[in-house]
Design a protein around this nucleic acid. Structure first.
Lengths: 227, 227
DNA sequence: CGCTCGATTGATAGTGATCAATCCGAGTGG
DNA sequence: CCACTCGGATTGATCACTATCAATCGAGCG
């Protein structure tokens, strides 16, 4: 039987929760079928809406976006997924959104059935999945509030800080996704995203350097994003 | 040891998933401490943000709202919870929002520690919690997209249909919460909620009768809410 | 070097927020 | 039973923010 070596996660202390979750996620790839992570090229589709939900994925390198499209062509990005993060966990038998690689991306993959079996056998696996879902729930809640009530600058400040913290960057943040992706993630048009980048730059909160964003004034950004 | 009598939930078929979840939720109250459900009067606080998260609740009768308030007084309703629904499951040691009774409400309550113990012993309990979280995730995702991109009429149509389906009503829906609550839930001002009710009424999609809403044209409402 | 696609900037219109003024209904006290 | 009161709901007028349409820019690439 496959075991996760995550003692720190078993005896979890509240204060270490997030750190231990991150640790545990590093072990997750060991559950994957004994393959190397699989490459998806930029904009390649990983799965589509309504596909049978047979696999759960973990990002190794790169970024993934999960996308919903409506009948009349409107698009929404449900989430971006950075290294260590898990996606593809569905409640029903079918995928509730599609998933695409934002840039060249390597993914670990585990059969849903297999994960379910492992979770039954190994409490640590079950806890990991549960903790991940709960963590996600908090994330989504935060975004929910911001989408409902925040203005463009607040949304973008949140986006930058959130992404930076998730990829573990403090200053120089690579933005692989296009303005439309960001817009569809934050409920803004790509033009507004663009203008808002400009606004933040003019205020001296950030600097733009190609596909990189420099977070010059985290304090002010945090003040904007703090909801 | 306490067991849930939810065979149908153990041998879950995809098509019956939602029905079986609902069935399983009906058994949830049996886990609660052997008290009667507890009454909270309208607008009474059940717990506040930052309180230790010691209990998980299930609505027996009534409606609960979970609320976030920001430093500068802005308010957001994270969710409404109707009978059978569970709330108060937190990822950290503290409550991430406050909870208040919308109207007179009866709640079952179970100690968090106890639920965690039960979930370890009884796979069905663990699955119930997991299924509930996944179900919730789908719900929230749907709302997320709507908040990001939907217009007022679409948001309100969604709100009405969603609430109706959750309380199991097809025509005559009781709206216990005020316009501000609905607004803070959908990311609208109370005035806009009011105006939008009027719009839907003028279009003949709904009728207003005191605190009740009659869903006259579900088809059109669905067309609006379908995102 | 010209092409192409995304990003940026500009001009305008639409939607909802905000401020403000009734309206309405339930509860209260005479 | 009825006038009174109070808070939420509705309606109105105006303003701010962002979507949309359109033009230009700019970098990567054949």
């Amino acid at each position: 039987m496959l075991h996760l070596n995550i003692a720190s996660f078993r005896d979890e202390s509240p204060l270490l929760r997030e750190a231990s979750l991150s640790l545990a996620l590093q072990e997750f790839s060991k559950l994957a079928s004994l393959e190397r992570p699989q490459l998806f090229k930029a904009d390649e589709t990983i799965y589509s809406e309504e596909d049978p939900a047979s696999f759960v994925y973990q990002v190794s390198v790169g970024i993934v976006r999960t996308v919903l499209v409506t009948g009349d062509g409107k698009r929404a990005v449900r989430g971006f997924h950075v290294p260590l993060e898990i996606f593809g966990i569905e409640s029903g038998p079918l995928c509730s959104s599609s998933a695409e690689a934002v840039c060249d991306t390597y993914l670990f993959r585990i059969e849903r059935k297999r994960l379910e079996r492992l979770a039954t056998d190994d409490t640590a696996v079950a806890r990991l999945v549960l903790s991940w879902l709960l963590f996600n729930k908090d994330q989504v809640s935060r975004r929910l509030v911001l989408l409902a009530r925040g203005h463009a600058v607040e949304k973008l400040a949140y986006f930058l800080l959130d992404l930076a913290s998730r990829v573990g960057v403090s200053q120089r943040l690579e933005i692989s996704m296009g303005r439309s992706d960001i817009g569809d993630y934050l409920g803004l048009s790509s033009e507004t995203v663009s203008r808002t980048f400009t606004t933040l730059r003019e205020r001296g909160f950030i600097a733009l350097d190609g596909r990189y964003v420099l977070l010059l004034d985290r304090q002010s950004l945090t003040a904007l994003a703090r909801w």
